[in-house]
């Protein structure tokens, strides 16, 4: 008999329901393990190979393209309800490599590696010549805008004092000269109206996060700040199964507790 020819792996259509199921488990995995930036949604499955695994099961080796949504990583909204960041808002894509084990009909992520990159300035300006581009998050203007916005929010808040967690997106707008920022915040054990030394405030044991959008407009002799924050329901600390210890977490990500199964957004609180 002729020796078996052909690949040792099973070839599967990238749009096969089984491939798609594995890809969705993979994208869900990265979203549950993000603590900064934005949730991503599946855009395209680039490649898939299905390897037999001993003693049982199969491993899906996949390359996946994702797109950034408008939901912050700490936002408990299910990604299915999140909008994809549009080209005019300077979209961001993710390139991911995954290995997903399928055993007894269940998918389990063994390995995940993702890199994200914004669309090129040329491409954004091609579809929208006047759209502001993403700005570096550590630029002086961006940091100042986020800090001024949070100060404004806390000054008008009747509840907890909120600390900055991370600035997740920023754009410098030419006309009127302004800085648009989006950032995550966390509640502390201080009361906003009574804070004298913010350094003495501690994050709540039952972490409560919020997400703010703000515009700082430069004026002659001053600046205007408009900020809107949505405070999310508190997130209980839950133990979570981990993948292979050799598997890296997605770039720019660290492990955080799983969001609650029934998310609810409190707010938004508008200043």
């Amino acid at each position: 008999a002729p020796p078996a020819i052909g690949p040792a792996y099973r070839e599967l259509n990238c749009d096969d329901p089984e491939t798609e199921q594995a890809a969705l488990v993979a994208v869900d995995y990265i979203n549950k393990h993000l603590s900064r930036g934005y949730k991503h949604t599946l855009n395209q499955i680039d490649k898939v190979k299905v390897w037999p695994r001993r003693p049982m099961g199969e491993v899906f080796e996949m390359e996946i393209d994702t797109l950034e949504t408008t939901c912050h990583a700490l936002d408990p909204t299910p990604v299915v309800n999140c909008s994809v960041r549009q080209l005019t808002q300077h979209a961001v894509e993710g390139d991911c490599d995954f290995r997903v084990l399928k055993q007894d009909g269940q998918f389990h992520v063994l390995f995940a590696k993702c890199d994200s990159s914004p669309d090129s300035a040329e491409d954004v300006l091609k579809v929208c010549p006047d759209c502001p581009l993403l700005a570096p998050l550590n630029s002086t203007k961006v940091v100042h805008a986020a800090e001024a916005a949070l100060r404004t929010f806390n000054a008008h808040s009747n509840g907890s004092y909120f600390q900055l967690v991370d600035v997740s997106r920023a754009q410098l707008v030419p006309l009127p000269v302004s800085t648009y920022v989006e950032f995550a915040v966390a509640a502390t054990d201080c009361v906003a109206k009574e804070v004298t030394d913010p350094a003495k405030c501690n994050l709540l044991a039952e972490q409560q996060y919020g997400f703010c959008k703000a515009t700082l407009t430069e004026k002659v002799g001053g600046e205007d700040v408009a900020v809107t924050c949505a405070v999310f329901q508190t997130q209980p600390v839950l133990p979570q199964p981990q993948p292979d210890t050799n598997a890296p977490t997605p770039v720019g990500a660290s492990v955080v507790p799983a969001p609650p199964p029934a998310p609810m957004v409190v707010g938004p609180l508008v200043v």
């Binding site: 855009n43 395209q44 797109l67």
Partner: peptide, 27 residues
Amino acid sequence: KVVQPGVVAAVSPVAPPCPGRIRHFKI
């Protein structure tokens, strides 16, 4: 008369369509 033995052509598998569909837009 010497003839070559018949060679059974290996059935080449049809390459699976990858990459898959774009769900939103490509950047």
